[in-house]
């Protein structure tokens, strides 16, 4: 236990040092998505979320970022808290010359599709987290902001190993301000 704590502290300190070594390594953002539950359709929802993220590295390939997201929305006609998701968002690669420049024509963007994996705690069944996976195929980066649109995702029930829900995140904008 003591060893785990020590590892945790070392990781935190390392992240802090890395953040000072590069530019803008943490931020916040928001997203909008729709979710459909396969076995329990009553839990399907439309929602918006706020997230914080940490991106301490600057890799051209497989750059990891950590995020934590809290989601509110409308489920069965009632608004409220829906779920909490925490995980890692991995940029698969970064490309400066790409065909999606017309979407953000002001300044030059980088195309960087990502794969996210994490744990999602649903408010209606918080005991066991779902395994959350998302593919952001249309994802553009500015140096101080990330944008992604139409990203499909699924959640797996780790007890049964089956897909619990799926959905499309319509957009997700992240702002790197620290």
């Amino acid at each position: 236990m003591r060893k785990n704590r020590l590892v945790l502290i070392v990781i935190m300190l390392a992240c802090m040092q890395l953040s000072f070594a590069s530019y803008r390594t943490a931020g916040y953002g928001w997203s909008v998505e729709g979710t459909a539950f396969l076995l329990q359709p009553a839990y399907s929802s439309s929602s918006g979320a706020l997230h914080i993220l940490l991106t301490p590295f600057d890799f051209e390939f497989l750059e990891p970022a950590m995020f934590c997201e809290v989601r509110f929305g409308i489920r069965s006609g009632s608004p409220g808290y829906l779920n909490l998701t925490a995980g890692s968002e991995i940029s698969l690669f970064r490309m400066i010359n790409h065909p999606f420049g017309f979407l953000m024509p002001v300044n030059k963007t980088a195309y960087a599709p990502s794969f996210s994996i994490g744990a999602r705690w649903e408010s209606h069944d918080a005991e066991v987290p779902r395994l959350y996976m998302q593919l952001a195929w249309l994802r553009l980066l500015e140096k101080d902001a990330w944008y992604q649109w139409f990203s499909p995702f699924v959640t797996l029930d780790v007890r049964s190993g089956q897909i619990d829900s799926w959905g499309i995140q319509l957009w997700r904008f992240s702002y790197l301000v620290w």
């Binding site: 935190m12 993220l53 950590m66 995020f67 925490a86 744990a119």
Partner: peptide, 15 residues
């Protein structure tokens, strides 16, 4: 999962 979530929350706060 709880540990990952705590880490994801805690590190940015420290930052």
């Amino acid at each position: 999962c709880r540990r990952v979530a705590l880490l994801a929350l805690f590190v940015p706060m420290i930052l």
